[in-house]
Design a protein around this nucleic acid. Structure first.
Lengths: 245, 245
DNA sequence: CGGGAAATTGAGTACGTTCAACGTTAGTGG
DNA sequence: CCACTAACGTTGAACGTACTCAATTTCCCG
């Protein structure tokens, strides 16, 4: 138990109105009084440790989550136990939308680092959204952005050359870090090479070789999980299909 | 121009309450009086001819569409003009969600056959959804199903073997036809081999060879676009990862 | 019936996978 | 604080599958 003043500070620091992700999250574009109503249905969950599951395949979809600190991966499991990483979720990005369709999660969500999430009960969100017109729109916008990232993923998978896939991947991450107000040209990968390989449909060795190749070509600098994009122009060109050969 | 009685029949046949797709579409689970309110904002569009665009990259996202008769493909265009089929849309399935995120369509939508769509202005849908709680939920369910199909697509792309991709593709189509109340074990592909190849990340020759191989193995029977699934068990096994070797 | 697109088939090549060995990093306990 | 260990990552050589290029056949629509 804590004394009253401390609780207040904690509350203040933690609610939507004061969240650094506010612009990216559900409250964006909603007037202060309505943010308060939204805030009341958002549960702050205790931290999720690295490697811990946020939810699992088959569990009900009573809530959606927003990564608040730390990033997550979602992993689809075939019946035979083969796994595939289908998404990475940086702070401000929604997790758990996969269950909207049939009420059951189709994938596992696992924390890539020690993380923290906001938890939004769907039923209560519906109630608030019905009363706050802007929230409904914003919910669809956020869902739409999530679908856009899925489409980006698909575009990566459709590239024939492993190098192109990796460049697209780095470009996508770069943009998302910049959206978070961080440096998009130098960042730490929160995931392993194995995760990247699974996400891109490549084996780990190929990912490793691609990183090495891109470094040799002077396009990026890699050291472990630390990455710097040296020739953003070249990467952007590859993204737009003007291949380098 | 038509005489009054004919118009009435047309109207009756065309509105949501009498649509054969009702169970799959936005009205599902909404009481009759509310269906009427939804119905009032749904515009029936004049038929879309085979090969015609429903919308194009960059156009605003004022509306979403539901395929009513005939199917569609959505095609993403890289800046260099390279195209990739990112989705097929059978009757009852939503088209145009790709613009929810940023208000602009990221792909072209093209009719694969002479088709007909329902057109739903987003702004008006928001209004009705705010008043009809069930509609909001149903909209999210339909969106969720659409995301589920995207995830299925991704799972196809992640398969290493071309045969597996094609089998997953046929399985997915089969299920969707059955949802429509049609025969899931024998159907006509609405799209070309080229479309299939683009969708699966394979060249057209590989798609052709896979069809031939699957036919030689007795798994399917193909003749042009007419397909029959002979060993659904084997296909289901492949889908679940128990490869055939 | 003719023309053009769609689909099939064949041979050679390129790229990523597989299998295997080695290096490196980070987290743990003595 | 350092040694130890296991997970993570890199590099190399041989192989296999899908791609490329090219020729031919089938199908569909006017």
């Amino acid at each position: 138990m804590e004394t009253a003043p401390v609780v207040d500070l904690e509350t203040l620091r933690r609610n939507c109105a004061n969240c650094s992700l506010r612009q990216l999250c559900l409250p964006a574009g909603i007037v202060a009084s309505d943010v308060e109503r939204l805030d009341r249905v958002v549960k702050r969950r205790k931290p999720v440790a690295r490697g811990e599951h946020l939810f699992r395949v088959g569990s009900g979809a009573a809530r959606i989550y927003v990564a608040r600190e730390g990033s997550f991966k979602t992993v689809a499991c075939s019946a035979d136990g083969e796994q595939q990483v289908i998404g990475f979720h940086l702070p401000g990005e929604l997790i758990g939308l996969d269950a909207l369709g049939h009420g059951q999660h189709r994938c596992d969500a696992i924390a890539l680092e020690n993380a923290r999430v906001c938890e939004v009960p769907l039923e209560e969100l519906h109630h608030v959204a019905a009363q706050v017109p802007g929230l409904q729109r914003q919910l669809l916008r956020v869902i739409g952005r999530s679908m856009g990232r899925d489409q980006d993923h698909l575009e990566m998978m459709s590239r024939r050359q492993a190098n192109d896939r990796v460049m697209l991947f780095l470009h996508s991450l770069s943009q998302r870090f910049e959206t978070l107000g961080q440096d998009g040209s130098a960042f730490a990968l929160p995931m392993t090479r194995e995760d990247i390989g699974s996400y891109l449909g490549l084996v780990i060795e190929t990912v490793s070789r691609s990183f090495t190749k891109l470094q040799d070509d002077g396009v990026i600098a890699v050291r472990g999980r630390q990455v710097r994009l040296l020739q953003q122009r070249q990467i952007a060109d590859a993204v737009h299909g003007h291949a380098l050969h």
